[in-house]
Design a protein around this nucleic acid. Sequence first.
DNA 1: GAGACTACTTTGTGATACAATATAGCTGTC
DNA 2: GACAGCTATATTGTATCACAAAGTAGTCTC
Lengths: 113, 113
Amino acid sequence: MIPSQLLKGTLEGCILAVIRKKPTYGYEIAQQLAAYGFGRIAEGTIYPLLLRLEKSGAVRAELRPSELGPNRKYYALTDRGGEELAAFMASYAELTGAVDRLLADTQREDEEP
Amino acid sequence: MIPSQLLKGTLEGCILAVIRKKPTYGYEIAQQLAAYGFGRIAEGTIYPLLLRLEKSGAVRAELRPSELGPNRKYYALTDRGGEELAAFMASYAELTGAVDRLLADTQREDEEP
DNA sequence: GAGACTACTTTGTGATACAATATAGCTGTC
DNA sequence: GACAGCTATATTGTATCACAAAGTAGTCTC
C-alpha cells in the first residue's frame, strides 16, 4: 500500500496523464489507477481533484449518458492541462533523480564496510 | 524547483536515509538534501520533522558542541528507524513503479498515431 | 424489492511542507 | 565594540491535499 502522503501532488499529474491518453470519466480513472498499481483511490479523492482541475482550466468536462448506469462526466485535456502535465513530469523527474541519487549512496555504504 | 506537495512523505524517508549514511544534525541535513538536488528545504520543515522522528523513536538525538557556532543536535538511526526506512523504500518503489508504467503508456500514444 | 455495481457530490479531518519569526553563538571587519 | 554574516535550533500559523463517510441516483439480476 502506498501511504497517502506519498501520493500528494503525484495524483494530480497522474490523472492528467490518464486523461491525456484518452478522455475519460472519474470512475474509470480510479479503475485505471488501480490497474497501474496505485491501489484503490477513494472517490473522495478523485472527484474533488477533477473538479479542481476543471475549475483551473486544465481539463474540460462534458456530460454523456452511459449505456448502463448514471450519466458520465467525461474529461478531456486542454492546452493548459498539457502544459501542467509537462511541468509535473519535469518536477517528478527532478524528485526521483534526487531520491535515487540519495538512496544509491545509502546502498553503497552497505557494500563497502 | 520541486513543488512542496510532491515532497510530502518523501522527505521523511529521505532524512532517514541521510541519517543512516552517517549520524548528523539538522543544518547539515538541509545542506546535503540541497546537494542531492532537493532544493532548499526550509528550517520550518527540517526541525519539526526531526522532532517528530525523535518522538516516534526512529532516531536518537545527542547534543554536541560545535567547533564553530552554536551546539549541534546529532541524530542517529535506531532499529525502529531502519525499519521505517525500509518501509519507505518499498512504498517509494511501489509508487515510482506505478507512475513510470503510466507515463510510459502516455509516451507510447505519441509514437503510434 | 433487495442487493450489487455504476457514477458523482459534499463535508469534515489529519498529515505535512513552509513562511515568518525568534533566539543565540561564533567570526571577521571597520 | 558594533555590525554583518554564517551557523544552528525552535515555534507558530497557514495552505494544500488525500481520505473516510455519507448521501443521491441510475441500471441490472435474482
